[in-house]
Protein backbone atom coordinates (compact mmCIF):
# COMPACT_ATOMS: atom_id res chain seq x y z
CA UNK A 1 0.00 0.00 0.00
CA UNK A 2 1.36 3.50 -0.75
CA UNK A 3 3.05 5.58 1.96
CA UNK A 4 0.44 8.32 2.19
CA UNK A 5 -2.18 5.90 3.56
CA UNK A 6 -0.08 5.13 6.63
CA UNK A 7 -1.33 6.63 9.87
CA UNK A 8 1.10 5.11 12.28
CA UNK A 9 4.45 3.37 12.02
CA UNK A 10 7.09 2.23 14.49
CA UNK A 11 10.62 1.17 13.65
CA UNK A 12 12.82 -0.69 16.12
CA UNK A 13 10.82 0.68 19.01
CA UNK A 14 12.23 -0.13 22.42
CA UNK A 15 11.68 0.98 25.99
CA UNK A 16 13.72 0.44 29.15
CA UNK A 17 12.71 1.28 32.66
CA UNK A 18 15.20 1.80 35.49
CA UNK A 19 15.12 -0.78 38.25
CA UNK A 20 14.61 0.93 41.57
CA UNK A 21 15.77 -0.06 44.99
CA UNK A 22 13.51 1.93 47.26
CA UNK A 23 12.02 5.38 46.89
CA UNK A 24 13.93 8.10 45.14
CA UNK A 25 15.08 10.98 47.30
CA UNK A 26 16.66 14.33 46.51
CA UNK A 27 20.09 13.00 47.56
CA UNK A 28 19.82 10.00 45.23
CA UNK A 29 18.80 12.23 42.33
CA UNK A 30 21.75 14.52 42.98
CA UNK A 31 24.06 11.48 43.16
CA UNK A 32 22.76 10.17 39.85
CA UNK A 33 23.28 13.56 38.23
CA UNK A 34 26.83 13.65 39.60
CA UNK A 35 27.61 10.11 38.40
CA UNK A 36 25.98 9.79 34.96
CA UNK A 37 28.00 6.69 34.07
CA UNK A 38 26.71 4.76 37.06
CA UNK A 39 23.79 2.59 35.94
CA UNK A 40 22.66 1.94 39.49
CA UNK A 41 20.57 -1.22 40.00
CA UNK A 42 20.19 -1.63 36.21
CA UNK A 43 17.37 -1.42 33.73
CA UNK A 44 14.59 -3.67 32.52
CA UNK A 45 13.63 -4.04 28.86
CA UNK A 46 9.89 -3.60 28.66
CA UNK A 47 9.83 -3.46 24.87
CA UNK A 48 12.44 -4.58 22.36
CA UNK A 49 12.62 -3.81 18.65
CA UNK A 50 8.93 -3.49 17.74
CA UNK A 51 8.19 -2.53 14.16
CA UNK A 52 4.72 -2.39 12.72
CA UNK A 53 2.31 -0.04 11.00
CA UNK A 54 -1.34 0.94 10.94
CA UNK A 55 -2.97 2.17 7.77
CA UNK A 56 -5.78 4.68 7.41
CA UNK A 57 -9.10 3.01 8.20
CA UNK A 58 -7.41 -0.12 9.56
CA UNK A 59 -7.91 -1.82 12.91
CA UNK A 60 -4.87 -3.53 14.39
CA UNK A 61 -5.06 -5.76 17.42
CA UNK A 62 -2.24 -6.23 19.95
CA UNK A 63 -2.22 -9.53 21.82
CA UNK A 64 0.12 -11.10 24.30
CA UNK A 65 0.37 -12.47 27.82
CA UNK A 66 0.28 -10.22 30.87
CA UNK A 67 3.47 -8.20 31.02
CA UNK A 68 4.15 -8.59 27.32
CA UNK A 69 4.43 -4.82 26.85
CA UNK A 70 1.05 -4.07 25.27
CA UNK A 71 0.23 -1.10 27.50
CA UNK A 72 3.81 0.16 27.29
CA UNK A 73 3.53 0.10 23.49
CA UNK A 74 0.34 2.16 23.53
CA UNK A 75 1.77 4.67 25.96
CA UNK A 76 4.88 5.07 23.82
CA UNK A 77 2.77 5.73 20.76
CA UNK A 78 0.56 8.15 22.72
CA UNK A 79 3.63 10.07 23.90
CA UNK A 80 3.14 9.33 27.60
CA UNK A 81 6.46 7.48 27.63
CA UNK A 82 9.57 8.52 25.74
CA UNK A 83 11.15 5.74 23.64
CA UNK A 84 14.56 4.42 24.65
CA UNK A 85 15.23 3.33 21.07
CA UNK A 86 13.59 3.47 17.67
CA UNK A 87 11.12 5.77 16.02
CA UNK A 88 7.43 6.46 15.98
CA UNK A 89 5.78 8.12 13.03
CA UNK A 90 2.25 9.42 13.50
CA UNK A 91 0.08 11.16 10.93
CA UNK A 92 -2.85 12.83 12.59
CA UNK A 93 -4.15 13.49 16.04
CA UNK A 94 -4.53 10.53 18.33
CA UNK A 95 -6.63 9.69 21.37
CA UNK A 96 -5.84 7.10 24.02
CA UNK A 97 -8.50 5.25 26.00
CA UNK A 98 -6.57 3.45 28.69
CA UNK A 99 -9.21 2.17 31.06
CA UNK A 100 -12.59 3.77 30.66
CA UNK A 101 -13.37 6.66 32.97
CA UNK A 102 -9.79 7.65 33.74
CA UNK A 103 -9.92 11.22 34.99
CA UNK A 104 -13.49 11.08 36.20
CA UNK A 105 -13.93 12.32 39.74
CA UNK A 106 -15.98 10.23 42.12
CA UNK A 107 -17.17 13.17 44.23
CA UNK A 108 -18.57 15.10 41.27
CA UNK A 109 -21.98 14.37 39.76
CA UNK A 110 -22.57 12.35 36.61
CA UNK A 111 -23.42 15.57 34.76
CA UNK A 112 -20.21 17.26 35.88
CA UNK A 113 -18.18 14.18 34.94
CA UNK A 114 -19.68 14.11 31.45
CA UNK A 115 -18.26 17.56 30.79
CA UNK A 116 -14.94 16.74 32.48
CA UNK A 117 -14.41 13.40 30.74
CA UNK A 118 -15.62 14.91 27.50
CA UNK A 119 -12.90 17.53 27.82
CA UNK A 120 -10.30 14.83 28.53
CA UNK A 121 -11.50 13.11 25.33
CA UNK A 122 -11.17 16.47 23.55
CA UNK A 123 -14.90 16.86 23.01
CA UNK A 124 -15.71 20.53 23.58
CA UNK A 125 -18.34 21.49 26.12
CA UNK A 126 -20.42 23.21 23.43
CA UNK A 127 -20.67 19.86 21.65
CA UNK A 128 -21.29 18.00 24.91
CA UNK A 129 -24.18 20.35 25.59
CA UNK A 130 -25.88 19.37 22.31
CA UNK A 131 -25.30 15.62 22.68
CA UNK A 132 -25.69 15.37 26.46
CA UNK A 133 -29.07 13.66 26.37
CA UNK A 134 -27.85 11.16 23.78
CA UNK A 135 -24.79 10.34 25.91
CA UNK A 136 -26.95 9.68 28.97
CA UNK A 137 -29.47 7.66 26.95
CA UNK A 138 -26.78 5.43 25.38
CA UNK A 139 -25.30 4.83 28.83
CA UNK A 140 -28.78 4.14 30.24
CA UNK A 141 -28.15 6.47 33.18
CA UNK A 142 -31.15 8.75 32.92
CA UNK A 143 -31.96 8.39 36.63
CA UNK A 144 -28.43 9.19 37.76
CA UNK A 145 -27.60 12.52 36.12
CA UNK A 146 -27.45 14.46 39.37
CA UNK A 147 -26.02 11.63 41.46
CA UNK A 148 -22.36 11.59 42.56
CA UNK A 149 -20.30 9.30 40.38
CA UNK A 150 -19.28 7.22 43.40
CA UNK A 151 -22.86 5.89 43.61
CA UNK A 152 -22.44 4.17 40.22
CA UNK A 153 -21.02 0.69 39.75
CA UNK A 154 -17.82 0.11 37.77
CA UNK A 155 -19.85 -1.18 34.86
CA UNK A 156 -22.09 1.89 34.84
CA UNK A 157 -19.04 4.16 34.87
CA UNK A 158 -17.57 2.21 31.95
CA UNK A 159 -20.82 2.64 30.01
CA UNK A 160 -20.82 6.37 30.69
CA UNK A 161 -17.18 6.72 29.69
CA UNK A 162 -17.59 4.76 26.47
CA UNK A 163 -20.73 6.70 25.64
CA UNK A 164 -18.66 9.88 25.74
CA UNK A 165 -15.61 8.34 24.05
CA UNK A 166 -17.76 7.32 21.05
CA UNK A 167 -17.72 10.99 20.08
CA UNK A 168 -13.93 11.27 19.87
CA UNK A 169 -13.03 12.47 16.41
CA UNK A 170 -9.29 11.77 16.29
CA UNK A 171 -8.11 9.86 13.21
CA UNK A 172 -6.02 7.48 15.36
CA UNK A 173 -7.64 5.73 18.32
CA UNK A 174 -5.71 3.69 20.86
CA UNK A 175 -7.77 1.35 23.05
CA UNK A 176 -6.13 -0.35 26.00
CA UNK A 177 -8.31 -3.12 27.42
CA UNK A 178 -11.16 -0.65 27.15
CA UNK A 179 -13.99 -3.08 27.67
CA UNK A 180 -12.70 -5.33 30.39
CA UNK A 181 -15.10 -3.94 33.02
CA UNK A 182 -18.29 -4.30 31.06
CA UNK A 183 -21.08 -6.88 30.98
CA UNK A 184 -22.19 -8.78 27.88
CA UNK A 185 -24.67 -6.12 26.79
CA UNK A 186 -22.06 -3.39 27.12
CA UNK A 187 -19.52 -5.39 25.13
CA UNK A 188 -22.11 -5.99 22.42
CA UNK A 189 -22.86 -2.28 22.16
CA UNK A 190 -19.14 -1.44 22.03
CA UNK A 191 -18.74 -3.93 19.22
CA UNK A 192 -21.56 -2.20 17.36
CA UNK A 193 -19.56 1.01 17.61
CA UNK A 194 -16.41 -0.72 16.31
CA UNK A 195 -18.43 -2.15 13.44
CA UNK A 196 -19.65 1.35 12.62
CA UNK A 197 -16.04 2.62 12.58
CA UNK A 198 -14.95 -0.05 10.12
CA UNK A 199 -14.87 1.15 6.58
CA UNK A 200 -14.35 4.70 7.73
CA UNK A 201 -11.18 6.69 7.90
CA UNK A 202 -10.40 6.08 11.56
CA UNK A 203 -7.40 3.91 12.40
CA UNK A 204 -7.48 1.91 15.59
CA UNK A 205 -4.90 0.09 17.66
CA UNK A 206 -6.45 -2.12 20.29
CA UNK A 207 -4.90 -4.20 23.07
CA UNK A 208 -7.11 -6.94 24.40
CA UNK A 209 -7.20 -10.44 25.80
CA UNK A 210 -10.36 -11.15 23.80
CA UNK A 211 -9.17 -13.07 20.75
CA UNK A 212 -12.74 -13.23 19.53
CA UNK A 213 -12.86 -9.42 19.36
CA UNK A 214 -9.57 -9.29 17.48
CA UNK A 215 -10.70 -11.94 15.06
CA UNK A 216 -13.94 -10.15 14.22
CA UNK A 217 -12.69 -6.61 13.88
CA UNK A 218 -8.94 -6.43 13.36
CA UNK A 219 -7.41 -6.57 9.92
CA UNK A 220 -3.93 -7.27 11.22
CA UNK A 221 -2.55 -8.27 14.59
CA UNK A 222 0.67 -7.74 16.50
CA UNK A 223 1.75 -10.44 18.95
CA UNK A 224 4.08 -9.41 21.78
CA UNK A 225 5.79 -11.77 24.21
CA UNK A 226 7.98 -10.51 27.06
CA UNK A 227 8.45 -7.21 25.28
CA UNK A 228 9.49 -8.74 21.98
CA UNK A 229 7.62 -8.81 18.71
CA UNK A 230 6.80 -12.38 17.78
CA UNK A 231 4.61 -11.73 14.77
CA UNK A 232 2.78 -9.00 12.90
CA UNK A 233 0.47 -9.61 10.01
CA UNK A 234 -2.80 -11.17 8.96
CA UNK A 235 -5.03 -11.64 12.00
CA UNK A 236 -5.96 -15.26 11.29
CA UNK A 237 -2.36 -16.35 10.88
CA UNK A 238 -1.07 -14.48 13.94
CA UNK A 239 -3.89 -15.67 16.18
CA UNK A 240 -3.43 -19.23 15.00
CA UNK A 241 0.21 -19.10 16.03
CA UNK A 242 -0.68 -17.35 19.29
CA UNK A 243 -3.23 -20.01 20.20
CA UNK A 244 -0.73 -22.80 19.47
CA UNK A 245 1.79 -21.12 21.73
CA UNK A 246 -0.76 -20.44 24.48
CA UNK A 247 -1.88 -24.05 24.65
Amino acid sequence: MSEYLLRLRTRGLGKDFPLRDGRDTAMRVLHRLATPNDDGPGRINALVDVSFEVRAGEMVGVVGNNGAGKTTLLKLIAGIYRPSRGEIERRGELALLSGLGVGMVRDLTVRENVYLYGAICRVHRMRIRTIFDEIIAWAELGDFVSAPLRTLSTGMISRLAFSIARHIEAPILLFDEAMSAGDERFRHRCEEHFAALRGGDTSMLMTTHSLDLVERFCDRTLWLRSGEQVAFGDTKEVLSAYRRWAT
Binding site: L116, A119, H124, R125
Partner: peptide, 19 residues
Protein backbone atom coordinates in the same frame (compact mmCIF):
# COMPACT_ATOMS: atom_id res chain seq x y z
CA UNK B 1 -6.28 24.86 20.59
CA UNK B 2 -9.91 25.25 21.68
CA UNK B 3 -10.07 21.66 22.95
CA UNK B 4 -6.99 22.24 25.13
CA UNK B 5 -8.42 25.43 26.65
CA UNK B 6 -11.72 23.66 27.22
CA UNK B 7 -9.87 20.94 29.14
CA UNK B 8 -8.02 23.52 31.24
CA UNK B 9 -11.36 25.13 32.07
CA UNK B 10 -12.95 21.82 33.09
CA UNK B 11 -9.95 20.75 35.20
CA UNK B 12 -9.95 24.13 36.98
CA UNK B 13 -13.69 24.05 37.66
CA UNK B 14 -13.48 20.44 38.90
CA UNK B 15 -10.65 21.26 41.29
CA UNK B 16 -12.55 24.27 42.58
CA UNK B 17 -15.69 22.23 43.20
CA UNK B 18 -13.73 19.52 44.98
CA UNK B 19 -12.34 22.04 47.45
Amino acid sequence: DAADLNLLRELTVSQYKLK
